[in-house]
Amino acid sequence: MKPAHPSSCIAPAARRGFTLLELLIVLAVIAIFFAMAAPQITGVLGSNRITSSGEFVFNKLTQAQHMAITEHRDVEVRFYEFADPKSPGSEPEFRAIQFVGWKLDEADENENGNTDELLEQELTDVFSLDGNIIISKDQSLSTLVTDSGLGSGSGPVPKLDVNAQFVSFTFHPDGSTTLPIKSTGSDGVPDSWFLTLVNEVQAAASDTIPPDNFYTIQIDPISGRLTAYRP
């Protein structure tokens, strides 16, 4: 007679694996860690997006100035203002940039009786800002899109399929700009032209101006020199 196997003891047979309880506890711990880390991660991600958008705009403005110098022509920089097509009914904000040039159309008399008309010529594609990043319309944050003395207009933006307003200024072939010299700006500081990029959602929620996360680009009206400020 075989001796009875010591089965169904208090401890289960030593089979490899984890108990359900152990698994649940580990999952719960992992979930808690993620919940603690998530706000930090989204903060870093958001901050990264503002930095990259800011550098993008900075590079684009530099590109416009270089284009004016190398091609020896005036290059108009336009900032387009429109509502986010993905959320209709939202407020129009500055979300896109484009460079525009002017070409002399040495044509015969057209239907208006004009000859040698200046035609608008798109020099580049429309560059859209990432996601929720906008150029702030607050006067203390962005004189470059709010002050008088800028060119302006409206029209369809073909690539984006929206009708937009825009403000603009122009780079001359020697690198200078059409921005007028301000004797005193709205912030009491003379000669100051700048714009600030913020996250649309954060800016609305924040009670400080500027919000914690922003990217400011300043442009000297006479030399066209760009300076970036990032907290």
Partner: peptide, 24 residues
């Protein structure tokens, strides 16, 4: 500091540097 955008004046202390100036 005089050339900085006004709203930054509180965040940024004055920055002294040796700068190349163009009289123009």
């Amino acid at each position: 500091s005089a050339q900085m955008p006004g709203f930054l004046a509180s965040t940024y202390p004055p920055k002294f540097r040796s700068r190349l100036m163009e009289y123009r």
